[in-house]
Write a protein that binds this DNA or RNA. Sequence first.
DNA 1: CTCCCGCCTGCCGCTACGTGAGGGTCAAGG
DNA 2: CCTTGACCCTCACGTAGCGGCAGGCGGGAG
Lengths: 252, 252
Amino acid sequence: MAYTVGQVARVAGVTVRTLHHYDEIGLLSPSGRTPAGYRRYDDADLERLQLVLYYRELGFPLEEIAAIIDDPAADPAAHLRRQHELLTVRIKRLQEMVTAIEFAMEASKLNIPLTPEERFEVFGDFNPEEHEAEAEQRWGDTEAYRESNRRVSRYGKDDWLRIKAENEDWGRRMTEVLASGVPADSPEAMELAEEHRQIISRWFYECSYEVHTGLADMYMADERFTRHYENTAPGLAAYLNEAIHANAISRA
Amino acid sequence: MAYTVGQVARVAGVTVRTLHHYDEIGLLSPSGRTPAGYRRYDDADLERLQLVLYYRELGFPLEEIAAIIDDPAADPAAHLRRQHELLTVRIKRLQEMVTAIEFAMEASKLNIPLTPEERFEVFGDFNPEEHEAEAEQRWGDTEAYRESNRRVSRYGKDDWLRIKAENEDWGRRMTEVLASGVPADSPEAMELAEEHRQIISRWFYECSYEVHTGLADMYMADERFTRHYENTAPGLAAYLNEAIHANAISRA
DNA sequence: CTCCCGCCTGCCGCTACGTGAGGGTCAAGG
DNA sequence: CCTTGACCCTCACGTAGCGGCAGGCGGGAG
């Protein structure tokens, strides 16, 4: 069976121009032409077109689609698995955006101004392995993170206000201690480091000393967090980092 | 607080060029410039950028985004609500695509070739609620499906050949039993039904008797599966369905 | 034979940036 | 004080994936 461009376009739900384009770039050339130069598509062409559109829908660039389809050493099941993976990744991403939006909605209800980091967390550097490593380091293990999300999702307005108040109070006292000039491994600083750990444990997830030091290192390594603390008080990031380490060692 | 282009770009996960572009087209112009002509973004600009990026992620053209954001009759909370809605809709759509792919995977396990129409289903216009109900009925429980995919993703060529062989062997014996004229609730038929359940459990996902009967009903309800079994032997679909039910009841 | 619809091949336009080129700026270090 | 390197600026052209139009041929129904 042979079809003209228009017929193919109609059944496939694309425009004639699109088919011309696919012919131009060699992605889908009709198997023949009539004497007058009309394109003639046969069933095999249609099948190929289906594959093309399928992958296109999944967001593959046309060039890549050609590579995938023309790869002789690829079974269809592998393709399907790939699609499935791709889609679930996308869904995960969107769901992350949803939680971010929900967070923003909650914050806007409370008139809590969001920091830039919070605002763009979901867009921010999405280098997969780096992100993964960062998350690894940040949460130590993903169970803690899930735990955190479980708890957080149940917090209401009052809870958030209390968390905010506690955190600000702690920040104020930490800044004072820093300004007072006592070393980071002094009892005062270490006590505040311990308090920091307990705030996290109380509100978010079980924060062991090990996880806590990991967190502290992350504060230093990640520019976004460093800036946050540096904006509060110059030198605070390093000071807090040292205090947390000192505290963890002394309690071990 | 003021930020330079580079800082904004980093935290938002976009390139400097993108911010330049948004400035050019007036979608997001920084609130000020330094004497040297450097762009200076403040917190309000960041907030706007956040909105822009969310709508962009949702696939809106930039021009439209500008119109949406600049709509005076929409407060920030309204934007968040709207984005939340749009996101959930998109997630639903993607999940439908996942279901379609899972269907394709299921079909390929049985060596059922997909018709063109079925392949177009993914992006074609299909009735959403009907589809939802179908998916519910089809897979019953999504955890089973995730489990299946986890396992399947690790299978190599040899595994697939074994699965295929086992499946064909089972099909042959099932056909023989059907041809022999014994009723569907006979021990022989029920034994083969049980074997079918165990093949699924072994290779794909834990298939309880309940899930198994659900699957059997799906084989009957879905014309594509019915056709597959009917092509193997007339009456096989209904026979298998009955045998599976009988087996489930007798083992309960 | 004519009419109109469908096909053809250019070719320019559009979006949302990428990617330099060519050149100022700013803070730190020698 | 001057250099260095990381930023910043403004053109300006390039790219993907088509949309859309012009100008011209083909083909089957009346």
